[in-house]
Simulated scan of single mutants.
Amino acid sequence: MFCYVLSIVFLLWLVYVYTTFPRYPQSMPLRERFIFYISEIVTVPTFWKLALDNIGLISLPHLCRFFASSPPIRLILPHGRPENRTLGGVSVTIFRPPASNRDADHRPRGVVYLHGGGWYLGSIYSHGAVAAQVAVKAKAVVVFVNYRLSPEHIFPAAVDDCFDVTEAVVQQADELGIDPNRISTLGDSSGGGLVLSVALRRRAERLRPLRAQILVFPILQCVYFGFSSYSNDRTVLITKQMVTMAASLYVAGDLRLLEPLANGRVLSRNTAEELLNRRWELGLSEDQLARHSLDAPPSEFESALLDPSLLPLAAKSMHGFSPTLVITSSLDVLQSEAELLAKRIRKAGGHVEEKSYEAPHSFFNYVGPYVGVDAAANAVDEIAAFLERNS
């Protein structure tokens, strides 16, 4: 009986494989499609189970270890172990390039790395290999920020930690062996949004801009889901529901905002018009605005949802930024808002470069031996080249 049930389950799994694989580009190597597919069938149902159970354990390190797609860091950085210490009152892990990669005449550049994971997942176990690769390829001292995660620590805890570490790196550059004039920030997914949030806060406090900033498929907002990339049936690995779940956990510490965010009903009518049509220049009609706004008084979380420290795409101005690299994925629901960011920075007179890869969200994590994919390796090379040109 058990074998019979197991056979049925296996047949259903094969059917799912057959119907799922065509969503990935046929030009993508079969091995890479299989890697992304396994990640999808493991992570998506588990994320939703955690959401439905509404438990407060989703930021435990062992979960990140379970989902870790990265190979052991020692396979990428064999010449030395990363250093754990505290900067700005926050735990960090520091990756240094091998001695053979260092310029004997200059101190290496510094990169503050803000990992992704929807503000509630992610750690050295899931993103450490990326940090190690950047250290090697960009010849940089990479400071990996172990910022506080939701739902135990809600907004603005993550932004505060990332800002404090960035400022500590600037102030303690000599001690860290970093060139103080060559410090940049790098972040993927929610970490990409945090990179921009840090830049906005530094601008507000009239601090000197950093040398460069790099955003990889960033989460920049969660109040409007009418962007074309959200209706792209080729998107995989991350969904609108996963974005709204992460935002609700980060803002409210629970799932009370899940339904309002998913329905696009968290903004007052005037705020919707100001944000969507004036700042983002989406040109929505009155009927379209009505579908994305409330006639009743605004949500109690509206001010937080529009705070540039949380959703940096809502910032009134995009002027005064250091050179920016925006990396997107053509199979990602977040692509359109990242492209809008690049457009706004360019319109404000800033220097911005864009690079898109035909790969799903989170492809950046798949670096190194065993689970490495071409898009991730190329993205790291692109980052290293951008830093070489700009820092």
Score class of each variant (00 low, 15 high):
Tyr4Ser: 15
Leu6Lys: 15
Ser7Gln: 15
Phe10Lys: 14
Trp13Arg: 10
Arg23His: 11
Leu30Trp: 09
Phe36Pro: 06
Tyr37Lys: 01
Ile38Cys: 06
Ile41Glu: 05
Pro45Phe: 05
Pro45Ile: 09
Pro45Trp: 02
Leu52Val: 08
Leu52Ser: 06
Asp53Arg: 09
Ile55Ser: 10
Gly56Leu: 07
Ile58Met: 14
Phe66Lys: 12
Phe67Lys: 05
Pro71Arg: 12
Pro72Tyr: 04
Ile73Gln: 12
Ile76Pro: 15
Pro78Glu: 00
Arg81Pro: 06
Gly89Glu: 03
Thr93Ile: 10
Ile94Trp: 03
Pro97Ser: 13
Ala99Tyr: 08
Arg102Asn: 14
Asp103Ala: 09
Ala104Ser: 13
His106Lys: 15
His106Val: 11
His106Trp: 06
Arg109Met: 15
Val112Asp: 00
Leu114His: 04
His115Arg: 02
Leu121Gln: 15
Ser123Gly: 07
Gly128Tyr: 11
Ala129Ser: 07
Val134Asn: 11
Val142Met: 06
Asn146Gln: 06
Arg148Phe: 01
Ser150Gln: 08
Pro151Asn: 05
His153Leu: 02
Phe155Ser: 06
Pro156Ala: 05
Ala157Lys: 03
Asp161Val: 00
Glu167Met: 13
Glu167Val: 10
Val169Ser: 08
Val170Thr: 14
Gln172Lys: 13
Asn181Ser: 12
Asn181His: 15
Arg182Asn: 09
Arg182Pro: 15
Ile183Glu: 13
Ser189Glu: 12
Ser189Asp: 12
Val195Tyr: 09
Val195Trp: 06
Val195Gly: 14
Val198Arg: 03
Arg203Ile: 08
Leu210Gly: 14
Leu210Pro: 13
Ala212Arg: 15
Ile214Phe: 10
Leu215Ala: 07
Phe217Glu: 09
Phe217Lys: 08
Gly226Phe: 00
Phe227Ala: 00
Asn232Lys: 13
Ile238Cys: 12
Thr239Ser: 14
Lys240Gly: 01
Leu249Thr: 10
Ala252Thr: 06
Arg256Ser: 15
Glu259Thr: 12
Leu261Val: 08
Leu261Asn: 04
Leu276Cys: 03
Arg278Ser: 06
Arg278Asp: 05
Leu282Ile: 01
Gly283Lys: 05
Leu289Cys: 03
Ala290Asp: 03
Arg291Ser: 02
Leu294Glu: 11
Pro297Lys: 01
Phe301Asp: 02
Phe301Tyr: 03
Phe301His: 04
Leu305Gly: 01
Asp307Tyr: 08
Leu311Gly: 04
Ala314Asp: 04
Ala315Gln: 07
Leu325Lys: 03
Leu325Gly: 06
Leu331Arg: 07
Leu331Asn: 10
Asp332Asn: 07
Val333Glu: 12
Leu340Ala: 03
Lys343His: 05
Ile345Tyr: 05
Phe363Gly: 04
Phe364Thr: 05
Asn365Val: 04
Tyr366Asn: 03
Val367Phe: 07
Pro369Gly: 02
Gly372Asp: 08
Gly372Gln: 05
Ala376Ile: 00
Val380Leu: 06
Val380Tyr: 01
Asp381Phe: 02
Phe386Ser: 07
Phe386Trp: 11
Arg389Ile: 08
Ser391Thr: 14
